[in-house]
Amino acid sequence: MARGMLSSAEMDVLKKNPYVEDVNRQRILYIYEFKCFFMEQYLAGKRPVDIFRQAGFDVPMLGEKRIERATARWRAMYAANGMEALRGQVKANAKKKAVARTKKKAEDGDREYGLQDVADKLEELLADVKAYENRVRQLEKVTMELTDRMKVLEKRSNELVIEKEVLCKARRTGGEQNDNGCNNTELYQLIREAAEACPEYANVTKLCEALDVSARGYYSYWKR
C-alpha cells in the first residue's frame, strides 16, 4: 500500500514516538537504536511491518511502501558495514541540521530591520525602562523608611545618653529623700539643666521616669 505526503496530524503522532528523530511531510528520520532493533528483529525472521507495529508505529499511516524502502536502505547499509553503518545516517542528518541552523542564523544576521522591527524593539526597551523605574521607586521608598527609622533610633540613643548623665549627677548629689539620693527639687533642677543644655534630645517625660519623679510635679514646680 503506497502513501503520499504525511498530514500535519500524522506528523504530530509520529513525533510522539520515541523512535522518531525528526519528521517532515515527505520523510521520517528514525533514531539509530530503532534501526539496530529493526535489523536484529529482521535477521531473526520477523516481517518488517510486524517490527514497525511492535515499535508502536501505525503501519497504515506509514504505508507499506515507506516501510519497504526503509528496509531496503537499512539492509544495504548493514550488509556494507554492519550496525555501525546505520549510525552514519544519523550523523549525516545531525550535520545537515547544524548547517541549516548556521545558515538561518547568518540570514537573520544579514536581514535588514524594517520599521515594525524597530517599533517592536523600542516597545521592548520602554517596557524594560518602566520596570526599572518602578524598581527604583520601590528602593527609594524603602530607603526613606530606613532613614526615618535611623533618625528615630539616633534620637532615642541621644536621649538615653542624657538620661544616663542625669542619673549619674543625681547619685552624686546628697540627700536621703528618695532612691536617687536627693530630693525632688534637686531632681527637677537636674532635669531643667539637661533640657536647657540639649533641648533637641532632652526628653523631660523620659527624664522624669528615669529619676522616678512626676512630670506633672516637674512642670508645676517651675510654674510657681
Rank of each mutant, 00 (worst) to 15 (best):
L86Q: 00
V152M: 11
G217I: 04
S8C: 14
Y42E: 02
K206N: 13
F52V: 01
C182F: 02
D212N: 13
G56N: 02
V161N: 06
K46M: 13
K169H: 05
E176L: 07
K96T: 15
L187I: 10
Q116F: 08
G114P: 05
A202V: 02
R73P: 01
E163A: 15
K46A: 14
R53L: 11
Y201F: 11
N93F: 10
V161C: 06
E40C: 08
Q138F: 09
C198H: 11
C198R: 12
T102I: 13
W222I: 09
A131M: 12
A106H: 13
L125N: 08
K91I: 12
Q138G: 13
A55Q: 04
K95A: 14
N93A: 15
R216W: 11
T173E: 12
A2E: 12
L6R: 07
F52S: 02
R66V: 03
L207F: 01
S7N: 15
A197H: 04
E64K: 11
A131E: 14
F37T: 08
M39Y: 01
A170R: 00
T102G: 13
L14C: 08
E123I: 07
L122W: 06
E112P: 05
V213K: 03
T185Q: 14
V161H: 07
F38N: 00
Y30F: 15
T147S: 10
V161M: 10
E21L: 14
M150G: 03
R66L: 07
N180R: 08
E154V: 02
L115Y: 11
A80I: 00
E84A: 11
N183Q: 13
K16H: 14
M144K: 12
K141Y: 08
W74E: 00
R224F: 10
E64H: 11
K96Y: 13
P48N: 02
T102M: 14
A9P: 12
F57L: 02
D22F: 10
M77C: 03
S157N: 03
T102F: 15
V99N: 09
N203Y: 05
Y188N: 08
T102Q: 15
E40P: 01
V129E: 15
K121C: 07
S220C: 14
V118W: 08
M150I: 04
M83Q: 06
N81T: 09
A197E: 06
F57P: 01
R192P: 02
D108T: 06
L211M: 03
M11H: 12
E193F: 02
R216F: 12
R216D: 12
R137E: 14
L160F: 03
G217H: 06
E68L: 11
E68Q: 12
L211Q: 06
K35I: 04
K151S: 09
S8E: 15
N184I: 09
E33F: 01
D50P: 03
R172H: 10
Q138W: 06
N17F: 05
Y188L: 04
K35H: 02
S157K: 05
R224N: 14
R47Y: 10
E40I: 05
D212W: 12
E193M: 09
D22R: 09
Y42Q: 04
G63T: 05
N81V: 04
G217K: 01
L43D: 07
C182A: 03
A80P: 00
P48I: 01
E84D: 12
R87T: 04
E154W: 03
Q189D: 15
F37A: 11
L126I: 09
